[in-house]
Lab assay of single mutants.
Amino acid sequence: RKEMTAACTPRRRIINLTSVLSLQEEINEQGHEVLREMLHNHSFVGCVNPQWALAQHQTKLYLLNTTKLSEELFYQILIYDFANFGVLRLSEPAPLFDLAMLALDSPESGWTEEDGPKEGLAEYIVEFLKKKAEMLADYFSLEIDEEGNLIGLPLLIDNYVPPLEGLPIFILRLATEVNWDEEKECFESLSKECAMFYSIRKQYISEESTLSGQQSEVPGSIPNSWKWTVEHIVYKALRSHILPPKHFTEDGNILQLANLPDLYKVFERC
């Protein structure tokens, strides 16, 4: 597991931080080997919608929660590849102030007048994250320049770009939802926020969305749709870069829909 690298990086740093090793061990302890084997050997059937997909393993048909699986995938990559990410360069710098204002204007932020003026909160978020810029760049390849612009994001899987519609809320939550006081809790909560931002979430995906850094293989055609990215990038990574937690067998994120021999018997009677 320590050699797990989802995106190509030129050289690998050895990380011996106790906090990170502890988080890696927790993933191992909570892992479910049968689910790992199923995901490793599954045959992708198709997307139901951005949140759900169908896959077959041996004779069984499964309904998989793409949102939760991708979130767990990105969390584990962030923990196992800690401080070893490439950088996704933004085509132009994104001012943190503008991103924070967009987030505060969104109902998702939960902002009320009692929280104070949005401009003041946005300025605080910019200054707060600028103070964390060195650590964010060093460990997470999340790059913020001296003017308070976001200029780079971590490359977690080759050819995958997170849904940038979720970027404003991500920046807001970096400042408000991460435990910045304790090292282990900081790395864990920061990785979880980043994983949620990178995950496939239906509120940020339309039929026209593209999450891939590449064009489709047909010359002159439109960019790959999110469905292509889910199948050929995300579920491909799920084959080798995730140890599913045991609770996925109990919380409805992986559901067995049918045993195909039983279905064949039904059709034979028709």
Results as ranks from 00 to 15, higher is better:
K2G: 11
I205W: 04
A83D: 04
C194Q: 03
S106D: 11
A122M: 02
S216T: 09
S199C: 05
F140L: 05
E37V: 09
T59E: 14
N179G: 07
A122P: 01
H42E: 05
G120Y: 14
F267C: 15
T59D: 14
S191F: 07
G86D: 09
V230I: 09
Q56W: 06
F128T: 10
P223I: 12
C194L: 13
K132N: 07
Y62N: 02
T66M: 00
T112H: 12
P93F: 04
I151W: 12
Q215W: 07
K118T: 05
W52L: 14
L63I: 06
H232Y: 07
L102V: 07
K118P: 11
R269N: 11
E188D: 14
T210V: 08
I27L: 05
A237L: 06
I242R: 00
D262P: 09
R13H: 08
S22K: 13
S216I: 11
F128N: 06
R89F: 14
P93R: 10
F170T: 02
F97C: 10
H57C: 08
G116E: 13
K246I: 09
M101P: 00
N179C: 12
E29T: 14
E3G: 11
F44I: 04
I79V: 11
M38P: 00
L172N: 04
E182G: 08
G46I: 09
E92Q: 11
A94M: 12
P117C: 09
T5M: 04
V161P: 02
Q51N: 06
E134M: 11
N41F: 07
L136N: 02
G213E: 15
D115N: 08
H241A: 08
E147W: 08
Q214S: 10
E165N: 12
V34T: 13
L243F: 10
E25Q: 10
F82G: 02
L69V: 06
Y160V: 01
R89I: 15
D181R: 09
Y75F: 10
M196K: 12
D181M: 15
K236I: 02
E183Y: 01
G152Y: 03
G31R: 12
L96P: 00
L155F: 08
P219W: 11
L260K: 12
F140V: 03
E193N: 06
L96V: 13
E147Q: 12
W111D: 03
L121N: 09
K68V: 11
I171F: 04
E250G: 07
E188N: 10
R36L: 08
V48R: 03
C186T: 05
N28T: 09
P245I: 01
L211A: 10
P245N: 04
S221W: 09
E33R: 13
N84Y: 01
R13P: 05
H40N: 11
T66W: 00
P117F: 07
L260D: 13
I200V: 12
W226K: 02
N179E: 13
T249I: 11
H232M: 05
L155Q: 12
W228E: 07
P50N: 03
T176C: 09
H232D: 03
L102A: 15
F97N: 12
T249D: 15
K131Y: 10
E113N: 08
H42F: 10
N16T: 14
E119T: 11
S141K: 07
Q76W: 01
F97G: 13
K130R: 12
N28Q: 13
Y62F: 12
K265I: 04
L142N: 00
L153M: 07
I151Q: 11
R201L: 02
A7T: 06
S212I: 15
A100G: 07
Y75E: 02
V45F: 06
A103C: 05
Y235M: 05
I222S: 14
T176P: 03
H57F: 07
L150W: 02
I79S: 03
V266F: 09
S19L: 03
Q215N: 12
I254A: 04
Y235F: 07
M38H: 03
K68H: 07
L63M: 09
E250N: 08
A94P: 14
T210D: 08
A7M: 05
H42R: 02
N65S: 11
E108C: 07
F170R: 02
Y160C: 00
G31A: 15
T67G: 07
L238G: 01
P10C: 08
S91M: 07
G86I: 04
C8D: 12
R12L: 14
I79W: 01
F187N: 01
P107Y: 09
G86P: 07
I79K: 00
L142S: 03
K60F: 15
K60S: 13
L155H: 10
H57V: 06
K265M: 08
G152D: 02
I151A: 12
M196F: 08
A94F: 15
D98C: 07
Y198F: 12
S212H: 14
I254V: 14
M196Q: 15
F82L: 05
L167W: 03
P244Q: 01
P223K: 14
L243N: 09
M196R: 15
F197V: 02
W111P: 04
S199H: 00
V234I: 14
Q24M: 10
D105K: 12
Y75P: 00
L142M: 09
T249L: 11
Q30Y: 08
L172Y: 13
L63T: 00
S206P: 14
Q30P: 03
V218R: 12
M38L: 13
G31W: 04
R173F: 01
L39F: 11
K246D: 11
K246V: 14
R1M: 15
I151L: 10
P117Q: 07
Y198D: 00
Y80V: 13
L64P: 00
R239M: 03
Q30A: 13
V234M: 05
E268A: 08
N16K: 10
Q256F: 11
Q215A: 14
P95I: 05
I242A: 03
F248G: 02
S91E: 13
K130C: 11
V178W: 01
I205H: 04
G220F: 10
L164R: 14
G148V: 04
F82S: 03
Y139T: 04
N16S: 07
P50M: 06
V45Y: 06
L54T: 05
K192Y: 07
L172H: 13
G220H: 14
I171S: 01
S216M: 14
L155E: 12
I144W: 03
I125Y: 08
C270M: 12
L61E: 02
T5P: 06
Q214R: 06
E71V: 04
Y124F: 09
L150F: 06
K265Q: 14
E188L: 10
S191T: 09
G116H: 06
Q51H: 04
S199W: 00
L23A: 04
E33N: 10
F44C: 00
E188W: 09
E231I: 02
N28D: 08
V161I: 07
A55L: 09
K265V: 04
L129W: 04
E231N: 03
P107V: 14
T112G: 12
Q56T: 15
N16H: 09
L155K: 11
S225C: 13
L39D: 00
T112W: 10
S206N: 13
V266E: 15
F140C: 03
L156M: 05
M196I: 12
E123F: 12
C8V: 08
G220P: 13
F140G: 01
S189H: 13
L153T: 02
L164T: 06
L167Y: 02
F44E: 02
